[in-house]
Amino acid sequence: MEQPNLEYINQLARGDESIKNELIDVIKTEFPEEKKDYYNSLESKEYKRIEENVHKLKHKISILGLEKSYEIANEFEHNLRELSLDRKEDFDEILIAISDYIEII
């Protein structure tokens, strides 16, 4: 599986450590909240809410340079609109990989 990276964040920060740190801080705060919202919405089986949460998480996936995972998230989001949970397991794996990564950055 592809690994999350800070390439995009480094490009955006252009060597400014304070910007880089701010962006990383936001990911570290916002990602766990969004992940929690996603699992809560899964429990309540509210497809619209699940889709909204996947959409938000999708942005974090792209920021961390996970191009293939982004496509998986897109497919999952589309499936949710059809009230299908197909690709949920793949999406959950991406979330685990990101959770592990943000622990070490």
Partner: peptide, 13 residues
């Protein structure tokens, strides 16, 4: 934007 990350990125740009 409802996402803080998106707002911070836009602010940076």
């Amino acid at each position: 934007d409802d996402e803080k990350m998106a707002r911070v990125i836009l602010k940076t740009l």
